[in-house]
């Protein structure tokens, strides 16, 4: 009996590994879609959301642009009878941006946490995004400044799928989250490809 178990455990492990690989690959293969109206916001007040805003405008996607969107905004939109169907939260922190908005990273993290909690409650699809590449990762920040990574952790670990610039994943940060949490990841190389990504996501 013992010998039988010893013989089967490796096979079982291989099976589990293969099935998890298959499930990951399947997740990548399935086209990720979302619905309008959309809320485009930020976690970290970086200029990244403007990139998405330009393409959402060009594609005539019905969206609101609010870099400091709060849970209350989702609630009031629902009360109006026009609830958001998806939220795009762009990660990456900017000291200039947070300074301009008069907020700290702690403020950003607690606002985002409440926003995500309300979105989940309302069944709104959450898209985590990182648009600006390695320049908006901790490699582009002061030694010891990990605000970029904090914003990524706050959003990408709990979103429904991710849209990320491939160069910003050159250390495998987002691929690791995707594999570990089984969250689909859409990678794009050129900024101009953002348009194609959004076209597919919002069926435009």
């Amino acid at each position: 009996m013992k010998t039988l178990i010893m013989r089967r455990v490796p096979r079982l492990l291989i099976l589990v590994f293969l099935s998890s690989l298959f499930s990951f690959a399947a997740n990548q293969a399935v086209a990720q879609t979302a619905s309008e109206p959309v809320l485009l916001t930020s976690c970290g007040q970086s200029p990244g959301p403007v990139r998405l805003k330009i393409f959402l405008q060009k594609l005539n996607v019905n969206f609101d642009y609010n870099l400091q969107a709060k849970a209350d905004d989702l609630i009031s939109k629902k009360k109006e009878g026009k609830p958001y169907k998806s939220i795009i939260i762009v990660t990456g922190a900017s000291l200039k941006g947070m300074g301009a908005a008069g907020v700290s990273m702690d403020d950003e993290l607690s606002r985002t946490k409440a926003l995500i909690a309300e979105a989940k409650k309302q069944g709104i699809k959450i898209i985590g995004s990182h648009i600006e590449g390695m320049a908006r990762r901790s490699q582009g920040a002061t030694a010891g400044d990990n605000t970029d990574e904090m914003s990524i952790d706050a959003v990408c670990n709990v979103c429904d799928f991710m849209i990320v610039k491939k160069e910003g994943d050159s250390d495998g940060r987002f691929t690791t989250i995707s594999k570990g949490k089984n969250i689909p990841l859409i990678l794009f190389e050129l900024n101009t490809e953002i348009s194609d990504v959004l076209k597919k996501v919002y069926n435009k």
Binding site: Q45, P47, K96, G99, A100, G102, G133, A135, N191
Partner: peptide
């Protein structure tokens, strides 16, 4: 950044 051979970002001008 896509086509010119160098990378350049953007930053918002702080209001304060």
């Amino acid at each position: 950044t896509d086509f010119e051979g160098f990378s350049i970002g953007t930053e918002f001008s702080p209001k304060n």
